[in-house]
Amino acid sequence: MHHASSSAGGQLRLALFAGLAELAGTRALDIPWAGGSVGDLRQAIAAARPAVAGLLERSAIAVGGRYADDDAIVQAGADVAILPPVSGG
């Protein structure tokens, strides 16, 4: 997590849902974040909470309420949600 321990001191609060929240033990996961891509964020989350790694692989990430590709950039302080495979209906 070298990229997440910068002196910039940025942080992300991630909203987790359903089984992902259960695996992480929290619905709001704070991780240090100096900026990077959604792909970087996936790695940072898996490192911070190894238990979620498998389900995270199958989850979508939304930034500011919009689904984001792995190469999208996430700024510190962004509104980020991790959305596991859906099961409504």
Binding site: F17, A18, G19, A62, A81, L83, P84, V86, S87, G88, G89
Partner: peptide, 14 residues
């Protein structure tokens, strides 16, 4: 609508 709801709306069932 039902197909789409089940497939793409961020709702989860326990």
């Amino acid at each position: 609508l039902m197909e789409r709801i089940k497939r793409e709306v961020p709702i989860w069932k326990c």
